[in-house]
Design a protein around this nucleic acid. Structure first.
Lengths: 110, 110
DNA sequence: TTCTATTATCGTATATTTGCGATATACAAT
DNA sequence: ATTGTATATCGCAAATATACGATAATAGAA
């Protein structure tokens, strides 16, 4: 890389890219799906279902937290994670703004 | 990594992740935007606008091609790239299937 | 043919991501 | 206090991604 070029791109581009990157791994997709589908979203249950070590799952959860895709609350010794739907809605909106809307303006360039 | 665990996840999870990964970089977002907004989507024009070397842009274009987000046709010495809207629509659909639809079923887990 | 412009690919350096085991931490129960 | 359970963090190794310059390949112009 020699040096990080992220500053050269604008904020919206970086936000979109960061979100996409966060869901850009099958393990994280799978984790999000597990959290979404159950009411009790305890970390241990996720570890049980995923084909990964506990420490690896914990690391993916950390990344999802950092990208604001989930929220986490401590419940005794356990940790409960939830989808942060607001971030998803924001992504949907920005994504459509960037791409789908442009589609109608430019149906076929080649 | 020691070894790639992608086989442990199902096809849909991997497809979603691959798409997300492909747009998970500000340079590629920016490239897609440039292609989408102009009618003549010549590689050289993209290189001019992006703050990256020609070889780097070419590499990003290759990744977008590989992820089926764009199509490329040779036009003499030049190359013309176009958004493959079908892939975008497919992503939108799968994304909603996975996440947004789940939202209504499970408004707030914590 | 020779020169020029355009794009792709190769080789390489560096950065980041992924994954695991070991360990630390925090709480609960005994 | 000790033990057990649940989760997070550390340190490391291997894999991938990012970026660039140099070079190759190709088409068109001179």
């Amino acid at each position: 890389m020699a040096f990080n070029k992220k500053d050269e791109f604008n904020k919206k581009e970086n936000e979109l890219a960061d979100f996409a990157k966060a869901i850009g791994h099958p393990a994280r997709i799978s984790i999000l799906k597990e959290i979404a589908k159950r009411k009790e979203c305890i970390c241990g249950e996720i570890v049980e279902v995923l084909p990964l070590a506990q420490s690896t799952v914990s690391q993916h959860l950390k990344e999802l937290l950092h990208a604001d895709l989930i929220t986490g609350t401590v419940d005794g010794a356990k940790s409960c994670y939830c989808i942060n739907w607001k971030t998803f809605e924001k992504f949907e909106k920005t994504f459509n703004e960037f791409f789908i809307n442009t589609n109608s303006k430019n149906p076929s360039c080649c």
